[in-house]
Structure formats: structure tokens, C-alpha cells
Computed example of a mutant assay.
Amino acid sequence: MSSFHMLTRFTFTIGAALFATVPIALAAGPGDHSHGGGHMMKEGTRMSGPMSFGMPGQAASADRVIEIVMDDNFFEPETLSVTAGETIHFKVSNQGTLVHEFNLGTPDYHVAHQAEMAMMQQHGVLMGDHINHEMMNMPMGDDGHTMSHDHPNSILLEPGKSGDVVWTFTSAGDIEFACNVPGHYAAGMVGTVDVE
């Protein structure tokens, strides 16, 4: 192969890779994307602070407890009603045979988070019915950022496990709770939160 053809193929490959990342970055929208470490993303930079619809709460000051059951591929209940300003202590259990996630966010947030979860699957962190915890601690990029899943609005659980998310809802909006493990959201593992 001539050096011209090799350079053309290399340029096309790089261009296609860059083009493929644009929709993911744009889908996140401003202010609602998070990565490991519990830091929220705002226009591509890490920051601590609330998301557009709320912020982490304290279990001791929760107004009420809601139990969430995750199964293969649905939530029980599928809809929730909360009041703006209310702090909810979600007690989440995975009664399915697969790894599932309970994640609070806007539809745009979930689209962006699905790309992160796909990367976790591609790197061998998500293994269908279990999590490779050792791989979770491996760096993802030059900044030493890992694939840990420690978001304050979310919990990732293996089958038979349970955990807690405590969230204060600050404003009404289009809010969902969803499992963003690849394929689960598309299979219908999403519910709605009605904030009054």
C-alpha cells in the first residue's frame, strides 16, 4: 500500500473517531453529567454541586423512605411522586440475575451516562451478572480518572445486592430513574419521577 493510501486511511479513521464522539458530548447537555468521584460535569469540566433537579441528601434528614426493586429489566414501582424540597431515602435491591443500576437523571443525562456505561462494559468492568471491581479502579485516561461508579444520584448493584441513594429533589422537570447498563434502558428499564 502506498504511503498516500496509508495516510488517507489514517486520516479517515481519526476523522471518523472524532465525529463519533461529537453526539455523545452534545447529548450530555449542560450541567447534568457525572463521572466517578461523585463530581458533576458542567460543560465538560468536573465540578462539585447539585444537578439541575436536585442534590445529594442525608439519610438522617430524609422525609421518607421508598423501596425500589430492580429485576430483569424492570423497576417496581415504575412511577414515583415527590414534592420539590423533599429528601427521599431510596432503599434499592437487585432481585434480578443481571447487574442493574438505579440512576436518577434527566433523559439527556441518561443518554450521556449510557456512553460511560458502554465504556465500562467494553473495558470488562460490567460482566453481565457481576462487576469486575478490580477493573473499576483502573485509570480511564491521562488524568488518572477511574471507571469507579460512585455517583451520588446512582447505585450499581450485582444480583442479590442492595444499597441506598438519598436525594433531595429541588425542582420539577423531566426526571427519570433508569438502568443504563447497555441495553437495559432500551429494553424498558426506566421509570418516571413526578415532582410536584
Score class of each variant (00 low, 15 high):
166 V>F: 03
146 T>V: 06
185 Y>R: 14
117 M>F: 10
114 Q>T: 10
98 L>E: 09
100 H>F: 10
98 L>P: 00
108 D>R: 09
106 T>S: 12
6 M>S: 13
166 V>A: 01
80 L>N: 00
46 R>G: 09
102 F>D: 01
164 D>F: 09
112 A>I: 08
16 A>E: 05
28 A>R: 05
169 F>H: 00
177 F>P: 00
51 M>F: 14
147 M>I: 08
22 V>T: 12
171 S>F: 06
181 V>Y: 05
192 T>H: 09
7 L>G: 04
51 M>V: 12
189 M>P: 01
106 T>I: 07
153 N>L: 14
178 A>P: 00
26 L>G: 03
86 E>P: 01
43 E>H: 11
101 E>W: 08
133 H>I: 12
66 I>D: 02
58 Q>S: 11
84 A>P: 01
185 Y>G: 01
18 L>F: 14
1 M>D: 11
103 N>V: 13
83 T>E: 14
162 S>R: 10
4 F>W: 11
87 T>S: 03
163 G>C: 08
149 H>P: 01
149 H>K: 08
109 Y>C: 09
11 T>R: 13
139 P>N: 05
148 S>M: 14
13 T>D: 08
105 G>F: 04
82 V>L: 04
93 S>R: 15
167 W>Q: 00
115 A>V: 07
148 S>A: 13
123 H>E: 10
145 H>L: 15
16 A>H: 04
56 P>C: 05
88 I>V: 14
85 G>Q: 04
32 D>Q: 13
193 V>F: 05
80 L>I: 15
190 V>Y: 02
133 H>C: 05
31 G>A: 09
167 W>V: 02
134 E>T: 12
102 F>R: 01
9 R>K: 14
45 T>M: 11
169 F>L: 02
1 M>N: 07
63 D>S: 07
182 P>V: 08
162 S>L: 11
53 F>S: 00
77 P>F: 09
10 F>V: 15
50 P>M: 07
6 M>H: 15
151 H>Y: 13
144 G>H: 05
125 V>D: 00
29 G>A: 06
171 S>R: 08
164 D>C: 03
70 M>Q: 04
88 I>E: 01
69 V>H: 08
33 H>R: 11
51 M>G: 14
